[in-house]
Nucleic acid binder design. Structure first.
Length: 979
DNA sequence: TACGTGTGGTAG
DNA sequence: ATCGCTACCACACGTA
């Protein structure tokens, strides 16, 4: 498999690789990078290391994970380290709180799987305080003795077959009894006899999915199968992992030159599903493959690129996708492989880490990372080489998952480049593209990050003439964008269109700590929610709170503000929507309440939420979704410190069920009056008594406020209380277009319509006009071959003698030339007069800057320290810039003039003669990269790029090969040049 | 002006 | 059957 891909990637390989390989630069053919080999074979090894190879070996980059230079190159180190930290804090806690407790769990290592009752953190405490170890990870090395679980999926049952799997009750009862009870009595698998176990598994084979939201296990079961839940939690886990392990020293400072590699798996879910599918045989490259749960209204989580050719997109329903397939083509539906995905992803991140190339690796999601390299004068690396390194390494380590890489010096350009790179490729956004239609014309309005479905349609309405980002860039003024999209987003888009990251995006790079710090916590379920009685809602709310509080405790935080959001069936929506157990068209209503004190008390928060639900007055039968948000999280430790000065002023008088163990801070700066209860305004509904509440004044205000702003209330019978303004607004909402006014996913009727993802006219034509990557690159490859034959002087590339002879001639020729050129002024005069005297200056026009009109070698008086000048510049970077600009300006209809090319050749030779072969290699590589890129975004061949291809093969590579052949002939690699 | 609440929108 | 999550930003509008 690996061979297959590398072969195919060779075939559609960039000009760089092909030209060089075909030209035998990479003689050793031992899978090392061609330029690396070249460096070894040429002079100036040490200098070369400084310039090119440093990327891979830079010792400064090895300290990514800690100032103490931890070596994280080993795969397991990260987890071992984290486990060590965990163990330490556990033992500290045991020391502090567990001294008087019987150490009944000595020598046990407990792992808790899934949601349990009591919850995970309670069990954690129980285990730790009674002498046991709590393992957060189930790895081969963690030597877990027991797994605690409430119930297990069949898959897990098989996976855990060799472990002792027990119910949480084992721990609880053991603690109660004060001694370790035999685990067998609490075994989940009930493996008293082999027969029973088998029976159990068989029975569970058709383990029915829990679709009733009133089932105690509904939430767990739903989450276990929800892709979106997984995406969200994985993302937060990765962020936390980043915060736990990164080295702040490596954060780029503003103003530093960066190179950004945006790395992303190609159709990750589908690839993983196909690779790990044992039951269904399928070929990722031949059949349309999708990942989904069901058959009709099931969402497609991911589809491979064959499926995408038919117009299938992620998020589409299976029924619709099937229709898009040509006759006779069967859509292959594969199940989710969440465990495998997680596994591949952590390999992915470790691989990136182990490459030791980047200053910082920012997790974007389970399958996507942004790798950042700080450019310094020392690491003069090759971006394309790095892209390929990443791709090869990930492909190898994940055993068959391909990533694409977009590379640029801003986030936005890297992201757009990634789009061009997909699938299974890379794209580097070069300087000349940043402001060129060549680049921007490849993108549609919806390619801009931050512009989703709603805003794209806004853009399309306001700028109907703009079919691509280049047109949008030219048509959309910053004022109009701001007016259309709002101040922030408007200027963001304006900047993005110019390849610049706005402050918000840059914050990710320059302040990842605060970007990744969690500020809120929530649970949000809008599938399978069906109630008939208010008690069911109450119970459900309690389970939500239970779930959230478990997490809250893990984070050692309290919440001081709670939001409840309810999805209510829209008025004219059918009771049961098209999607099985879906939410259908809904209106959303929310209510936020501040808790008197930051808290993680289940009773208190649940009660609060129940009140809030009542205040929304939504009939339970109409509820289609419920979300609970904890906002304004407060660090438990900090909170304890903070409240100390207030302590003496607090009067505690709280009823039994909501006993608060820690002292209370007053609500804001108002005098606390904890005995006052909230008068409930839910139409005479039951008042909750005894709950500490906010001060009277505030409550009254809120009552009033709630009545006035009850636009957000699902009920209609308070209409007469509305302010005229609200009424007007409401009327506008109704009459104008409720869809565009409230176009959220939730409210949008599109949610229910099967055609919501059918490509628009523009989209389909765009897709069909745009050749696939493979096709395009095959063309590039062919061109290479053809030009090679056409211009290749037959077998002369392989003919050492011929080459040496030619080289010698050229060498002498150039020596003469160089001698002639040592008089810089005369040459300049000559060239300039040539340009003037001839109307045909190789096609140069006014618009085409005469970038390369003179050049040459300046021989300083000091023989040991002369400088090579190009364009009158001597710094390598500046020379490269000027060289690049020249290429960019002559890539199209107007090719570089022959005269200029001769001067280039002179320049190359003088570089070689002075041992600056690394610069020649860079120049060769640069040209090759530019041509590759050009061919990726241009279908057409221009005079300019064709000519440059000839230059690349006939001049640059040819010259390098001659050096290579010298080496073969055991000629000296140092040329003592006498001036 | 500064802040609070409710809502819309987006990304993976 | 089917698993339509969730963190976070920005804005409009209201209040102190």
């Amino acid at each position: 498999m690996a061979d297959d891909i590398s072969k195919s990637s060779n075939q559609r390989s960039p000009l760089t690789t092909n030209y060089l390989r075909s030209e035998k630069i990479n003689v050793n053919d031992n899978n090392e990078e061609p330029f690396y080999n070249a460096s070894n074979r040429f002079t100036n090894q040490s200098y070369f290391n400084k310039n090119l190879d440093i990327v891979y070996e830079n010792p400064n980059l090895n300290i990514q994970n800690g100032t103490e230079k931890k070596d994280y190159s080993s795969r397991r180190t990260y987890f071992e380290d984290k486990a060590a930290k965990q163990a330490l804090s556990d033992s500290v806690r045991r020391e502090a709180y567990g001294k008087d407790k019987p150490q009944i769990f000595n020598n046990l290592i407990i792992y808790v799987n899934g949601y349990t009752n009591p919850d995970r953190s309670t069990l954690h405490d129980m285990v730790v305080l009674h002498g046991g170890h709590f393992s957060h990870y189930l790895t081969a090395k963690s030597k877990v003795t027991h797994i605690v679980a409430e119930n297990l999926s069949l898959k897990k049952r098989i996976e855990f077959a060799s472990y002792k799997v027990v119910l949480p009750k084992w721990l609880v009862s053991s603690v109660q009894a004060g001694k370790l009870l035999p685990w067998q009595e609490f075994s989940l698998l009930r493996t008293n006899t082999i027969g029973q176990t088998t029976l159990d598994i068989n029975r569970l084979k058709k383990q029915p999915q829990i679709t009733n939201c009133n089932d105690p296990d509904f939430i767990q079961n739903f989450f276990a199968n929800s892709r979106l839940h997984h995406l969200s939690t994985w993302k937060m886990e990765l962020r936390q992992q980043f915060l736990d392990s990164f080295n702040p020293v490596m954060i780029p400072k503003t103003g530093e030159q960066l190179t950004i590699f945006h790395v992303d798996f190609d159709c990750f879910f589908a690839t993983v599903a196909a690779l790990s599918s044992t039951t269904i045989k399928c070929d990722l490259n031949k059949e349309p493959i999708v990942v989904c749960h069901g058959s009709k209204s099931s969402d497609i989580a991911s589809c491979n690129y064959i499926a995408r050719q038919y117009g299938i997109k992620n998020g589409m329903w299976v029924s619709q996708a099937q229709k898009l397939c040509p006759k006779g083509v069967k859509l292959v539906c594969l199940p989710y492989e969440f465990d495998k995905i997680k596994e591949k992803s952590s390999i992915f991140y470790k691989t990136l880490q182990n490459l030791n190339m980047f200053n910082m690796i920012l997790p974007i999601s389970i399958d996507e990372a942004v790798c950042i390299l700080i450019r310094t004068s020392l690491n003069n690396h090759n971006d394309e080489l790095i892209c390929e390194r990443i791709r090869e390494a990930v492909f190898r380590d994940t055993e068959g998952c391909t990533v694409s890489v977009g590379c640029a010096d801003t986030l936005i350009l890297a992201r757009l480049s990634l789009k061009l790179a997909k699938p299974n490729g890379y794209f580097t956004c070069m300087k000349y593209m940043k402001d060129s239609p060549l680049f921007w014309e490849n993108f549609k309005n919806d390619d801009l990050p931050g512009i989703g479905r709603q805003l794209v349609s806004k853009l399309n309405t306001y700028y109907p003439r703009c079919n691509n980002l280049w047109q949008l860039r030219n048509d959309a003024s910053i004022e109009s964008l701001k007016a259309l999209l709002g101040n922030k987003l408007g200027s963001k888009v304006y900047n993005q269109l110019r390849g610049k990251d706005d402050d918000e995006a840059a914050k990710l790079i320059h302040d990842p700590i605060s970007t990744f710090e969690r500020k809120s916590l929530s649970i949000d379920i809008n599938w399978g929610i069906r109630f008939s009685k208010i008690e069911q809602v109450d119970t459900y709310l309690e389970r939500c709170v239970e779930y959230l509080i478990a997490k809250l405790k893990e984070m050692k935080k309290n919440t001081s503000q709670v939001t409840l959001k309810v999805m209510k069936r829209a008025k004219d929506a059918p009771i049961e929507p098209a999607k099985y157990l879906g939410m259908g068209q809904c209106d959303s209503f929310s209510r936020t309440n501040r808790l008197g004190i930051p808290s993680s008390l289940q009773g208190l928060i649940t009660t609060e939420l129940r009140n809030m639900f009542r205040s929304l007055s939504c009939p339970p039968a109409e509820v289609r979704g419920i979300a609970v948000h904890f906002t304004k999280l407060v660090d438990v430790a900090k909170y304890r410190q903070k409240r100390l000065p207030f302590q003496k002023n607090i009067i505690l008088n709280i009823n039994e069920t909501n006993k608060i163990n820690s002292p209370v801070t007053p609500f804001k700066d108002v005098v606390p009056d904890i005995n006052v209860t909230t008068p409930n305004r839910d139409n005479g509904g039951n008042l909750q008594t005894g709950i500490p509440k906010r001060p009277v004044k505030r409550v009254l205000f809120r009552e009033e406020h709630n009545n006035i702003s009850h636009k957000s209330s699902p009920d209609e019978y308070h209409s007469d209380l509305e302010s005229p303004r609200k009424k007007m607004q409401k009327m506008l909402d109704r009459t104008e277009s409720s869809v565009s006014k409230r176009p959220s996913i939730v409210n949008s009727p599109l949610r229910e319509i099967d055609t919501r993802y059918s490509p628009s006219k523009e989209e389909s034509s765009f897709l069909s006009d745009f050749p696939t990557r493979t096709a395009k690159e095959d063309i590039a490859y062919d061109t290479t071959q053809n030009s090679g034959e056409e211009y290749g002087n037959g077998g002369s590339f392989n003919n050492n003698v011929a080459n040496v002879n030619i080289e010698k001639n050229i060498y002498e020729h150039n020596n003469k030339r160089l001698l002639g050129l040592s008089n810089g002024d005369s040459i300049r005069d000559k060239i300039e007069s040539d340009e003037l005297s001839s109307q045909d200056t190789g096609g140069l026009t006014e618009n085409d800057p005469k970038i390369f009109t003179y050049g040459g070698l300046v021989n300083h008086d000091d023989e040991s320290n002369f400088k090579i000048m190009f364009q009158g510049i001597s710094g390598t970077e500046e020379i490269m810039d000027s060289y690049e600009n020249w290429i960019y300006s002559t890539l199209h209809d107007i090719p570089p003039s022959d005269r200029d090319l001769i001067i280039l050749e002179d320049f190359i030779w003088s570089l070689l003669r002075t041992g600056s072969i690394h610069t020649v290699i860079r120049m060769t590589q640069r040209l090759s990269s530019i041509l590759r890129n050009f061919s990726l975004i241009n279908k057409k061949n221009y005079n300019g790029n064709q000519k440059w291809e000839v230059v690349l093969i006939r001049k640059l590579i040819h010259i390098l090969n001659m050096h290579s052949n010298w080496d073969d002939e055991k000629l000296p690699t140092d040329f003592p040049i006498k001036y």
